[in-house]
Design a protein around this nucleic acid. Structure first.
Lengths: 325, 325
DNA sequence: CTGAAAGCGCTAACAG
DNA sequence: CTGTTAGCGCTTTCAG
């Protein structure tokens, strides 16, 4: 691999002159320019970014930590984050924690080891102090990591409200809520709380089936449903995550329960899978592109040492009209 | 940020001694060790990986290029790749080309710019010469990039055969194949070719609905089905990608066509979504963990300058017993 | 305009 | 065992 030194030598100039030409910083005579360009061409020289970034004290990379890439929500999220970071000229390093806290910790270390310039995290399998102890650019999605770390999340409260109001409007009297509250202090829990609040306010009974929040497994839902057959049979409305809702649709049809006539179902998240059935699932959708953009804009401002960064940014949610609720 | 120099100074030793202790290379007296450790602690020193990797001439990062993270197959693939690379102590940089060839080209450049040590690519929105011109570690999944670049892929031919044989065993006489042949020379096309070959061999008629290979959109399928209603009604067996198969199940039920009694459906890829319905889709599954491992093992051997690397590695596929075919 | 020189933070001989 | 020294490949003053 040719280095800047080789180029300078061949062009008969100093290495600084080559650097100036490469970076468009400072003047370079037409003559020198010509000779350098010839040398670059001849040696097919390509600058080494890593060497370049050492003096610049930057990595040009942002780490993104999420629970599991196999969850459609996070796959879509990272997809957008990667696209947005690219517009800023930054690369994306990914980490699925897959529930292994050691792995999450290791990736967080990458920030202190200067392999990434910042971290966007949507996972929290470690203690939050792991993040709090670091004085470098960090942005959190959906998990409150304290007052020093910008928090970006959907308006989950509104999401719960939208779902509740929809079911009420459809005349539901006995609703079931399926899903898992995060252990930690997480805005996503608001969706459950608000759902319940609105329902109670209107005197409608809400029962909650608590699950492991990260059960990616479809068959897991089937088991749960089987175990709570009566509760489901007794309900006329259900609010569940995308996968739970979809699984329930199938379960209901297996049980001869007609959707939405006898049972209304509203999904939460609104990822692609809600658009698999026809008609599509009625769903409260998170605005993933907006979440991603907020995360990226914020981490970039943090990296560029900007100020006046909003501590908390809430993204709107909306209802996807569908045929199940 | 404290540097190695600060630590050496505070410990009253040379910077090389600190380095030796840090890397466990060479001897360090118990006394020096104690003082250095104290200094590290006091300054809460953390070595800078980027600086470390400059002399080591490595980045510790592998780039993974795929068409779109939103496609479940690729999301699962990267998930595994990330996990496997991590075992080798390598980080994962992702790129969705999202069909923008400039982006793919830019990420390939990262290899020449030394920001990554190698690239695993499952995309090909650029001309293959882009890859061929580079003399650095590259591994390709599913696209033949010439004799110098290791190729890793599923035994798609067997996949086509498994599907064909299954449909034949079920007595299908008039089958439809839905999907898109890649424009380029791609092993995945074998699945169509073999499917057709086996069917023809047994005198069964095969019709093919050619689609854009990258239509991630579910509604796109609905359109296609609507447009080819009669062909579908006339068929008794269909072989399609996961999403196509799932969409067809719904379409069929909307048309009053019973699956599998009147129409057998076999999916290809076998990603999670095939396990959403109950019973699950009958599907030919690619072994994503194996594909990922082969890619990672191979790129690592390439990076470590190993030899005797198989040019072509084929991963077995298997049939997922389901209720649709 | 330009080159020498001093870093960026760390590794790795190589004489002590 | 240990410190000095010379890099890794590039950026960036700062006198010419």
């Amino acid at each position: 691999m040719a280095t800047i030194k080789d180029v300078a030598q061949r062009a008969g100039v100093g290495i600084a002159t080559v650097s100036r030409l490469l970076n468009g910083t400072g003047y370079v005579s037409a003559d020198a320019r010509r000779r350098i360009e010839e040398a670059i061409e001849a040696l097919s020289y390509i600058p080494n970014e890593r060497a370049r970034n050492l003096p610049r004290k930057k990595a040009g990379i942002v780490g993104v930590i999420i629970p599991d890439l196999q969850m459609p929500f996070y796959a879509s999220f990272i997809r957008q984050v990667e696209i947005d970071l690219h517009e800023y000229g930054y690369k994306t390093m990914v980490c699925n924690t897959v529930e292994i806290s050691d792995r999450e910790k290791e990736y967080v270390d990458m920030l202190e080891r200067s392999v990434v310039d910042g971290i966007i995290t949507g996972a929290l399998s470690v203690d939050e102090t792991v993040y709090q102890q670091i004085d470098r650019p960090i942005v959190s999605m959906d998990h409150d990591l304290g007052p020093d770390i910008p928090l970006i999340h959907s308006d989950h409260g509104k999401g719960g409200r939208l779902a509740a109001e929809r079911l009420l409007r459809q005349g539901c009297k006995n609703v079931l809520q399926i899903g898992g509250l995060f252990p930690a202090n997480t805005p996503s829990n608001d969706r459950y709380l608000e759902f319940e609040r609105v329902m109670k306010e209107r005197g409608v009974q809400v029962r909650t089936l608590k699950l492991d929040w990260n059960c990616m497994d479809y068959s897991y839902y089937r088991e749960i449903f089987e175990r709570h057959k009566e509760e489901i049979a007794g309900a006329d409305g259900v609010f569940a995550s995308d996968m739970g809702a979809l699984a329930l649709c199938h379960f209901a049809s297996g049980q001869g329960i007609r959707v939405p006539e006898e049972l209304k179902i509203i999904a939460y998240d609104g990822t692609d899978m809600t658009r698999l059935p026809y008609p599509v699932l009625t769903a409260v959708c998170q605005d993933i592109p907006l979440l991603a953009r907020n995360c990226v804009d914020t981490i970039m401002r943090l990296i560029q040492g900007g100020d006046g960064i909003a501590y908390r940014q809430t993204a709107d949610v909306f209802l996807q009209e569908g045929g199940t609720g």
